[in-house]
Amino acid sequence: MANSLRQTWEQYHKGKPLEEGEVLTIDKKNGYILLERKQEEYLTKIEMCYWNESDKKHKLFAVSITSFVNGKYSAGQYDGLSFYRYNNASKTMSLTHDVGFDVAIGTSDGAQISYSLPRTGKDIIATMWYENKTKKKTIRWKGRKFN
């Protein structure tokens, strides 16, 4: 997944057209990127964004990958939500799980969970995908972690 994202990113920066079925949204103002890749009935979304932390020394960076088949969430091998903490002084980034909530891929009652990152605002939306319905939950940003 990272390799294909890098290829798309390089094509974009070289001013070359993206592959058929790819759409890249870059919102520099809001610190948000979305790559959508559609192939027949399959759609993969890779979202990235960051939050400035209240200590003004770090940024929290997130990557969310979600896969759909015929419009319904269908978790793939790479699906999920990952966080990285960026240190402004050292200009280094490292994987972190200390974000204020446990990132889950499913619920005890059988739902799969996908995450939508904010293009505007600060909060993440978790969607629980049940057989015949969905439920949404807002995960609120509190300056360094989520609630």
Score class of each variant (00 low, 15 high):
P17M: 02
S108Y: 03
E131Y: 13
T8I: 09
I46D: 06
N30P: 03
S90D: 11
K56P: 01
M128L: 15
S64W: 05
F68M: 14
R140S: 15
I125T: 15
G100I: 05
W129D: 09
I105W: 03
E41M: 09
K142A: 14
S116G: 08
Y115R: 03
I26W: 01
Y32C: 01
F68C: 13
K122C: 08
P118R: 04
E22V: 12
G143L: 04
K142V: 00
G80Q: 08
P118N: 04
F68T: 09
E41D: 14
Y12T: 01
K45C: 06
K28Y: 02
S114Y: 06
M128E: 15
D123V: 13
E53I: 02
G100L: 03
F68H: 10
T96C: 06
E20V: 03
M1G: 12
G121W: 11
L95T: 10
Q11L: 14
K91A: 12
K16N: 08
E36G: 07
T107H: 04
T138G: 00
S64I: 04
L60E: 05
A62Q: 01
T96P: 00
L34S: 02
D109Y: 02
K72W: 11
P17R: 00
G71T: 07
T8V: 11
I26C: 01
A104W: 06
I124N: 06
D27Y: 01
K145V: 15
R140E: 15
N88C: 09
N147M: 08
